[in-house]
Every structure is written in structure tokens, then in C-alpha cells.
């Protein structure tokens, strides 16, 4: 192994992307979505994508806004505190995007089935509802089945495995061997990484393996499961990374306002994604003053507001 190990620059990430691939992305609502990797994915031109998502609203919304999303297996996409993902929703309403609905646990269990190498995962939720009764693009019998327990102790819903081609994950820190640590909530990252064929991780910080070994309990994905690591400080912006910075509510608001019109959203994507030469230019465009203001407070875990605790 070379000294750089699995560490690659962002420009090399597109070699993992293909038209028509299925994709899953880490994060939950305002937290740790792999936004810099996602912007690179959109810049790469990969299209006809299938998303396997839980609550990664920005990923779904940007893929929909960029016109590269064909299908989504998912449970809930919305901008918490703002409202629904408009471009994604309008894509569904216009028939451009096909969807297959789940409850959160339904998505988690399908990814878990893949992660554990099982033909199905039994679960309790979703039974009796249109989520299992009304098919989207997937035949209902391939999605789930209401089965009797072989032990004679009731019935469960069996859901089939979902195996994304690629998982993109943004984490707190990683080493060159691909050992990945994440503080705070971990969303569905563990299941996504274990289910996916290829795992690409971006991290706020690249640390020595000794640092990982000192607190192995923080490791969420061991190096043996990771294909590439990219060093991308503020790589989750405008979402946050616990222990580093919180979500950028202004940026989120600006996008949300732009998402009301297709022209504005195109401009937003051109400005912040397509015409952005690289991640560093992106950070410069956001501005150091803004980035610094998002830094979390050690004891609070989120950004301190002036006067709030005086």
C-alpha cells in the first residue's frame, strides 16, 4: 500500500460513479450529509440515478434539482423547520421521479438485510398500510411479504434487501487506511456502509491511525469496508458535523427560497455546484466569517449565540 493508502483527491472520486448506478448517502436532515461528494457527483454528470435514502433531504433534493434522479427508495425527505423538498416533490408530481415509499425502519431493515447478507429482514412496522399495499416502481411481492413466524408466534413483515452500488458518507475524521470515526448521531451510516458495494468517505480531518486506535469505540466504519477517503473540511456544508460546525440556516433558507422557482434553483445550482471550480472555491464563496460562525461550542454541542447565555 502506498503511504497515501485510500486517501484520494476529490477530482478522482468520479471514477466510482456510473450512469444508472444506485446510491445511498449518510446523514440525517441537518446533519452530516456528504454534500461536497454530492456536488462532485453532480459535476461528474452521472445520470439516471437511483437513490436509496432515509432522511438525506439535501441529497435527494439536489439530485432532483439537477435532473439526474430517476428513482428513489426512501422514507422521508423534508427540510426540517422549513418544509418539503420542492424539487424532489415536483419531480414526483410530474412523473419524472419514481418513488418507492417506506417507513424509516423499513428502509433501515432493507439495508440491514443487505449488510447482514440475509435474504430478508423481519420487522413489525408498515403492516396494514398502503406503504406495502400500493406499489411504486417495485412489484409489491419483491418489496415485502407478510409471513407467519416459523415458530408459530405471530406474523411479521419480511422486507427484501437493498444493495446500493455506492455509499457516500461524510464523517468527522478518518485515517489513510479508511478507518472512519463519527461523533454525535450516526444516522444509518453503519447499515449503509455495510450494505453498499463501494464506500466513499469524506472526512473533516485526516488523522494518524494511532488517534483512531486510542478511541476505537468511535469508529463507525473500519478500514476494511472503505474504498476511498477524501479530505474535505466543511464537506457537509450546508449541513453540520457534530463536534465541528452546525448547519448553515442562512444557506438552507436561501436554497429553500430559490427552490420555489425552477429558474432560481437552476441559478443556485449553477452558482454553488456546476460553476464552482473546486471545494476550496466553494468554501471561499461561503466565506470564512460564515464558516467560523457555525463552529460548535464544546459544552453546548451547537453554535453559541452572542448574549444567549450571558
Amino acid at each position: 500500500m502506498t503511504s497515501s493508502g485510500k486517501l484520494i483527491p476529490l477530482e478522482e472520486v468520479p471514477r466510482f460513479f456510473r450512469d444508472g448506478m444506485s446510491l445511498t448517502a449518510g446523514g440525517f436532515a441537518h446533519s452530516h450529509q456528504p454534500m461536497a461528494l454530492l456536488r462532485e457527483l453532480i459535476r461528474s454528470g452521472a445520470k439516471n440515478l437511483t437513490l436509496m435514502g432515509v432522511a438525506e433531504c439535501w441529497v435527494a433534493e439536489f439530485l432532483a434539482a439537477a435532473g439526474v434522479l430517476d428513482r428513489a427508495y426512501f422514507s422521508n425527505f423534508m427540510f426540517e423547520g422549513f418544509g418539503r423538498c420542492r424539487q424532489f416533490s415536483e419531480g414526483v408530481e410530474a412523473g419524472r421521479i419514481e418513488v418507492e415509499d417506506h417507513s424509516h425502519f423499513g428502509m433501515v431493515c432493507r439495508l440491514q438485510a443487505s449488510a447482514l447478507g440475509l435474504p430478508f429482514m423481519p420487522m413489525r412496522a408498515m403492516a396494514g398500510t398502503d406503504i406495502v399495499a400500493v406499489p411504486g416502481f417495485e412489484p409489491a411481492e419483491e418489496k415485502s411479504s407478510f409471513i407467519a413466524s416459523p415458530f408459530g408466534n405471530g406474523h411479521v413483515t419480511a422486507v427484501s434487501p437493498l444493495k446500493p452500488d455506492v455509499a457516500i458518507i461524510h464523517a468527522a475524521r478518518a485515517d489513510r487506511l479508511g478507518n472512519v470515526q463519527l461523533f454525535g448521531t450516526t444516522s444509518v451510516v453503519e447499515e449503509q456502509a455495510r450494505a453498499a458495494g463501494t464506500v466513499i468517505v469524506s472526512a473533516e480531518e485526516i488523522v494518524e491511525t494511532d488517534v483512531i486506535r486510542r478511541q476505537p469505540e468511535l469508529t463507525i466504519i473500519p478500514g476494511l469496508m472503505v474504498d476511498a477517503v477524501v479530505h474535505l473540511p466543511y464537506g457537509a456544508h450546508p449541513t453540520g458535523v457534530y463536534g465541528y460546525y452546525e448547519h448553515d440556516a442562512d444557506h438552507l433558507g436561501a436554497y429553500y427560497a430559490a427552490s420555489r422557482s425552477s429558474g432560481d434553483v437552476r441559478d443556485f445550482l449553477r452558482c454553488w455546484v456546476r460553476d464552482m471550480p473546486d471545494h476550496w472555491a466553494y468554501l471561499d464563496a461561503v466565506g470564512m466569517a460564515k464558516l467560523m460562525s457555525l463552529r460548535t461550542d464544546p459544552a453546548l454541542g451547537y453554535a453559541r449565540r452572542e448574549g444567549a447565555h450571558a
Binding site: 467560523m292 459544552a299 453546548l300 453559541r304 447565555h309
Partner: peptide
Amino acid sequence: EQIVSEET
């Protein structure tokens, strides 16, 4: 480098 909360 950073102004932090009283709690911190």
C-alpha cells in the same frame, strides 16, 4: 480562536 459558552 473562539468565544464559547459560559457552560464550556
